[in-house]
């Protein structure tokens, strides 16, 4: 690393691990939720890129921003970022990301479901909150919503508190916060999954596979490929 690159990179901190868990979905399929590794980001970008053209349900803005955030993580331009992925038999069905603003405050970035109708986004968002509160030990997570679906899932289902004084990194829209109290109140009905994950199930989630672009677009738009 040259001197200039050293200046451009944020200080690196090893975040506490997020232990993988498995969630049985309404379909009976098992979704493993685990941390993504930085070297897996190029694969994730392949899945996110086609969604930038999908206007439906604000996939375009969410995908465009997520793409930039993941790229920032890959290229060492964002501090303390992480990404969790949802995998069914190794196939990527969704991802969530965020970062630490400080040791006590978390920032929620985005949630993308790549298969719909199974509450995959809701499960992954819950996993993200679980990570911030239970594994990073933070006091609050700042959250914004960029779609009506997100607003219903996060602000209403978790009963988030308004934080008008907070300038969230995603822009000037209203910021909301998940406090530890709100998290533990919501946990019995919203945060699910089993640990430890059986070895054979975990093995299926070691490598991330991305479905073909046409299939992916069909899955998120409801129009068959």
């Amino acid at each position: 690393m040259n001197n200039l690159e050293a200046i451009l990179r944020p200080p690196e901190r090893q975040l506490p691990p997020y232990p993988p868990k498995v969630i049985v979905l309404a379909s009976g399929e098992k979704m493993v939720v685990r941390e993504a590794k930085r070297e897996e980001v190029p694969t994730l970008l392949k899945a996110v890129a086609p969604l930038i053209q999908v206007e439906r349900d604000f996939y375009d803005i969410v995908a465009a921003r997520t793409y930039a955030e993941l790229l920032g993580w890959l290229r060492y331009r964002v501090r303390d970022e992480y990404c969790l992925v949802g995998l069914i038999d190794g196939v990527l069905v969704g991802l969530v990301n965020g970062r630490c603003l400080s040791r006590k405050i978390g920032i929620s970035y985005h949630t993308i479901a790549m298969r719909r109708g199974l509450r995959i986004g809701a499960h992954l968002f819950a996993s993200k909150m679980e990570y911030h509160i239970e594994y990073l030990g933070q006091q609050e997570v700042y959250i914004v919503a960029e779609s009506p679906i997100g607003f219903r899932r996060w602000m209403i289902e978790y009963g988030l508190e308004k934080r008008p004084q907070v300038h969230h990194e995603l822009g000037g829209v209203m910021s909301w916060a998940l406090t530890r109290q709100l998290y533990f109140d919501a946990k019995p009905r919203l945060v699910v999954g089993e640990r430890p994950v059986a070895e054979d199930v975990l093995e299926t989630a070691k490598t991330i596979t991305v479905v073909e672009e046409a299939v992916l677009l069909g899955q998120v738009t409801g129009k068959p490929a």
């Binding site: 969630i23 049985v24 979905l25 309404a26 379909s27 009976g28 399929e29 199974l118 509450r119 809701a122 499960h123 819950a126 019995p188 009905r189 919203l190 945060v191 699910v192 999954g193 089993e194």
Partner: peptide
């Protein structure tokens, strides 16, 4: 299993 019997059903 997914919609009724598993603990996840409360969320699913």
């Amino acid at each position: 299993e997914g919609i009724l019997h598993r603990p996840e059903a409360i969320m699913n």
